[in-house]
């Protein structure tokens, strides 16, 4: 549908025009890769877990995707503050179409970002098991991006201004990232943490990335895809619902 396309296109245009945003959001993954990757590399290897950079790379790609996509979804708040949101709200278009277009836009942007980070990991010494399997890994990135863009929009629809942004970063995004298996193998953690990771959608996203990039998985690709789909559908549905209730 046209509305979906134009909402998508807007996100792409805004992203491709903000060079500072692209460059800025590469710094964090780079820091993680260098400090964690090289800092813990020796310990990781000594513990018999293999090459840490290889393990870490999919996790950092996942990280850049969750940050980019949630941030993108939350730009609804800016639109509200700068007034543009009204223009989309009075349009004779089903709210689900607006939600979906925007979400896909955010997911595309996050995937582009993820691909840049992937290149960065390759330069730092990451060896994927197969070059061919990078293609399905990119699809997984798109999947993760869709899920978290929808979550970002859902959260943003419930907020009036940017006051709550820090709250969302610290109480939602950071825990989602740190408690997922992005930084450490879930096989060797306490049961409680295992349980928490098991309800964190990012764990399944990163797991699916690892399946294609380093041929390792905790949950199995099938379960990963089921859980990712489930969360995505729920966030899209809730997001459209909350979005349709926005009043300005």
């Amino acid at each position: 549908m046209n509305a979906v396309y134009i909402m998508w296109l807007r996100e792409i245009k805004r992203f491709s025009r903000s060079k500072s945003r692209i460059v800025g959001s590469l710094m964090q993954p780079l820091l993680f890769l260098v400090s964690f990757g090289f800092g813990f590399g020796a310990v990781f290897a000594a513990a018999g877990q293999g090459n840490y950079i290889n393990f870490l790379a999919p996790g950092i790609i996942g990280m850049s995707i969750i940050f980019t996509s949630i941030f993108n979804g939350m730009q609804v708040i800016w639109d509200r503050q700068f007034g543009f949101l009204k223009e989309t709200l009075v349009a004779p278009v089903p709210r689900i179409a607006i939600m979906f277009g925007r979400t896909l836009g955010g997911a595309t942007v996050a995937t582009l970002q993820g691909c840049i980070v992937l290149v960065m990991t390759l330069l730092i010494g990451f060896h994927p098991v197969s070059w061919l399997l990078i293609a399905p890994a990119i699809l997984i990135m798109l999947f993760i991006g869709t899920l978290f863009s929808a979550l970002g929009m859902m959260v943003a629809s419930l907020m009036r201004d940017m006051q709550g942004f820090q709250l969302v970063m610290n109480f939602l995004v950071m825990p989602l990232f740190f408690l997922s298996g992005a930084l450490f193998p879930l096989s060797a953690v306490p049961e409680a943490l295992k349980l928490v990771a098991a309800i964190d959608p990012l764990s399944y996203g990163v797991d699916a990335l690892r399946y294609f990039l380093i041929n390792a998985t905790t949950y199995g690709l099938g379960l990963d895809l089921i859980v990712l789909s489930g969360f995505t559908l729920v966030f899209l549905a809730l997001g459209s619902y909350f979005f349709s209730r926005i009043q300005v």
Partner: peptide, 8 residues
């Protein structure tokens, strides 16, 4: 109030 996308 304003309602344009200033980045477009």
């Amino acid at each position: 109030d304003p309602s344009l996308d200033e980045d477009l």
